[in-house]
Design a protein around this nucleic acid. Structure first.
Lengths: 143, 143
DNA sequence: CCCGGTCATGCAACAGGATTGCAAATATCG
DNA sequence: CGATATTTGCAATCCTGTTGCATGACCGGG
């Protein structure tokens, strides 16, 4: 998987916010920056492990929570009841997600900003909407 | 909570499909028919218990699975990673859900059929879309 | 430079939801 | 009625995620 990010991106991203750039945070953020789809805790754990710098399960959970609460990552709940994370893109306007019914991977569709006219039943108060599209990802779509 | 369903609705619904109308299925389906929002396993368990006909945890899971796989119920995964169920309404066109950020309850919005122009990235194959709206339910919306 | 406090990490134990295996009970069909 | 298939219940297990607590790293002030 080719991509243009390097370790330093993660560091500088953290530093530019005046936050501590600890090894765990740098590693996790770097992994997220290099991912092409949203990653689960298990995915990230596997990557830290294969990089030879395994993190404690709990530490990983806490780093992810920290990244989310500091606006650096975004957390997605999918049908399989597993949290998935990706780097937060600009605003947190309710964007759309794509879930592959073949492999279960979740992709963020940042471009897609569907307009829909919402008319809720009496008494309901609207706050935010999220669109989830299900289908086949490029890999699973191949014959 | 007033509603017009009775035990016999569940029975006849099952029988009209030529399926076994066991006590467990009748009870669960009846509960679902009388619910105003999607119910979790715990919700349904509590109701069977308060009715004096408690079901085994596992039996309840299996009855729910059975109902879903036979098109009688619909299963929803919410942010809290708890399955919720409601009676399946006609077609299974991807409909919309409302999740209350106050109490966590999930409501099915059967009427809402938002139109959105989906243009997926190259290689992705569309199957179905689902809209989740977050906000406050009538109860939590009261001052 | 060192001390004291704050923040981060790791380990262990736990929690809650859901699933699996297996045996007993129940229903269906010939 | 008896053979067969389906349902139910119980126990044990799994999987994801959390909490408590002690240790270790970092930072800022003297």
């Amino acid at each position: 998987m080719l991509h243009g990010h390097s370790r330093s991106d993660a560091s500088s991203l953290l530093q530019s916010r005046g936050e501590r750039a600890t090894p765990a945070r740098k590693a996790v953020l770097d992994i997220l920056l290099g991912a092409s789809s949203a990653l689960s805790h298990a995915d990230i754990d596997a990557q830290t492990r294969s990089r030879g710098q395994p993190l404690d399960r709990v530490t990983l959970y806490r780093v992810l929570d920290w990244l989310v609460s500091h606006g650096l990552a975004h957390r997605i709940a999918a049908e399989d009841r597993v949290w998935r994370y990706n780097v937060a893109h600009d605003q947190d306007h309710g964007h759309a997600h794509f879930r592959c019914s073949g492999c279960g991977q979740v992709f963020c569709l940042n471009e897609l900003r569907p307009a829909f006219a919402v008319s809720l039943p009496e008494g309901f108060h609207f706050q935010q909407a999220e669109l989830t599209i299900q289908g086949l990802c490029p890999t699973c779509n191949k014959p």
